[in-house]
Design a binder for these strands. Structure first.
Lengths: 258, 258
DNA sequence: ACAAAAGTGTTGTCTTTACACCCATGG
DNA sequence: CCATGGGTGTAAAGACAACACTTTTGT
């Protein structure tokens, strides 16, 4: 089946395989060059950028669905994925979708009462991924998929700006009682790197000496014997997460002061 | 329209007014006699206890819907209500509902493909209410509505036990960075009362002298000149929440140690 | 030798915890 | 006058915040 046929099939008969009235949208955070990034898609029609999202298959769990959607856009499996809120209160989400004309580019007959145009709640997940491992892929509905700096995000379709806000707020909050970083950083990283990551996300300067103390004393990160070559400067030591203590902290929670 | 007619109308044509495939369930916490309570409904059929829940009207926000459901069962308006998770992963929630026979008590023809029997995600809210103000009301589907001690909750229908667990975990977590109590206690309360409330929910003994210090120093509770008469013992002072500081703390967050 | 970034420890302050005796009331 | 629960302060320990000079490396 070619793309156009697949698209047509999905638009006209998708409700047989997918739940109507519900979608999933993922805020996918990456970190690169001291900037927090988010992965966005550019729609063919209606024109505009949005979060990557999708529908829930009728025989699929929400977690699996989100993880499928994410893997389709990034190529990654088994990444950190967290359900944070279900959106149904904004004006966009209390009525039917009205852009039947705007959808004409697809050359598929939607029809007034197409299932995709009905009121749709969206279950929001956020993901933390290693920027360097992602190969952004657009889908049938979209022309382009790429990273945006979190502070340059354009006006998005629907309530997606609100979703990113809430995802970010949740992430920030979470950083105080769970370790993060395992999914955003390469396996081996330096203290300045993780320090910058925390400063970037929290938008706050953190003491260069005090910051790592806690993580080290909790056993969450371990110093390696290797150093990273960073050109014309002193080579910093590499560290890595101690997965055992990290997971324990994730599970039991902790309280970071910063 | 009488009850039976209403029921029939809802079962057979409800999908015109309500979103299919989605419901809302509320974990309503109350506090009485040093025990944390939760409000449960006893279904006519399938027999068993469950959380109070309902469907989302097509033109209604989720928040409003939850608050309507809650007010129908408790008679209360404007109470603390928090969306905490959307459930769709348990086996019950990945398939159609199979108990067509079990539904026969209603004397309404459901039919194999009734909208109510399709896979249903549930958006979980939890509420904190003043036990003494609640007048539990069953609905068309249920015989009885009453409080259960949180540790005596019976096996519930579907994944509702899991929901209560998660609601409680969320509540406990929340207590460390937001004040609670305003919605669970009467307007005026004593230090032993709020102390017991916290101990009960957190399942932890809290120092009788240290505990109130924080709340008082943050300005969240204020001492009144009145005392409460508790019979044959020294009359304890009454306190009340300072709504200004309380709401500020709710909004900005705080960090309680306990 | 210089510029740029990394590495490292101590001290003062604040927060948290632990703890015990006296007081008020009703029966 | 006794039983029960309420009220109150201080000191020690631990956590946190502030802070500056030296080392490494490449050009």
């Amino acid at each position: 089946m070619n793309s156009q046929k697949k698209l047509e099939q999905f638009i006209q008969h998708g409700y047989k395989d997918y739940l109507p009235n519900v979608s999933i949208d993922c805020t996918i955070f990456g970190y690169h060059d001291r900037k927090l990034k988010v992965l966005l898609l550019n729609w063919k029609t209606p024109e505009g950028w949005s979060l990557p999202g999708g529908r829930v298959k009728r025989n699929e769990s929400l977690q699996l669905s989100a993880s499928r959607i994410l893997s389709e856009r990034t190529g990654l499996e088994e990444i950190f994925l967290n359900q944070f809120h279900t959106f149904g209160d904004s004006v966009f989400r209390q009525q039917r979708f009205k852009h039947t004309k705007a959808l004409s580019k697809f050359n598929v007959d939607f029809g007034e009462d197409n299932w995709l145009l009905d009121r749709t709640l969206s279950i929001g997940f956020y993901a933390l991924v290693d920027y360097s491992l992602v190969n952004p892929q657009p889908d049938l509905f979209t022309e382009e998929c790429r990273w945006w700096d979190i502070y340059d995000v354009p006006g998005l379709l629907f309530d997606h700006n609100e979703m990113i806000e809430k995802a970010l707020a949740t992430l920030r909050h979470q950083m105080y009682y769970e370790p993060i970083g395992y999914n955003l950083l390469p396996e081996k990283f330096t203290l300045p790197e993780i320090h910058d990551l925390y400063e970037t996300i929290l938008e706050k300067t953190l003491d260069r000496r005090n910051f790592p103390k806690k993580l080290i004393s909790l056993g969450i990160i371990k110093k390696l014997k290797e150093r990273k070559n960073i050109g014309p400067h002193r080579a910093p030591f590499l560290y890595r997460f101690d997965k055992r203590n990290y997971d324990k902290a994730l599970k039991d929670g902790l309280s970071l002061s910063f």
